[in-house]
C-alpha cells in the first residue's frame, strides 16, 4: 500500500506530511518519501494544494 508522488507537480510544501496519521511521509528538502507504513487512507491526497499525490489501490 502506498501513494504515488508526482514529482513534477509537487511543490515540496510538507502539508501532506503534517496530515498523515501514521507518519508514513517525509519531506526531504525537495521531495516526498513514502515508507511502508502507509495505510492508503487518502488524507494526504485530499489536502495536497496541487493534487500531486495519488493513492495506489
Amino acid at each position: 500500500m502506498t501513494v504515488n508522488v508526482n514529482r513534477y507537480k509537487c511543490g515540496y510544501c510538507g502539508a501532506c506530511v503534517g496530515v498523515c496519521p501514521v507518519g508514513a511521509l517525509e519531506l526531504v528538502e525537495t521531495w516526498i518519501e513514502v515508507n511502508n507504513t502507509c495505510t492508503n487512507c487518502g488524507v494526504c491526497a485530499k489536502i495536497c494544494p496541487v493534487g500531486a499525490l495519488v493513492v495506489v489501490k
Binding site: G14, V17, G18, G23, L27, P49
Partner: peptide
C-alpha cells in the same frame, strides 16, 4: 514547522485532520 515529526517521535501526536489544516496556494 507544519511537517513536524519531532513531536511524533517523542510520543506527541501532532498529526492534523483535514479540517485542521488550510491548504493554500
Amino acid at each position: 514547522g507544519v511537517e513536524s515529526k519531532v513531536g511524533r517521535w517523542g510520543g506527541i501526536d501532532t498529526s492534523l485532520k483535514p479540517v485542521d489544516i488550510d491548504t493554500c496556494a
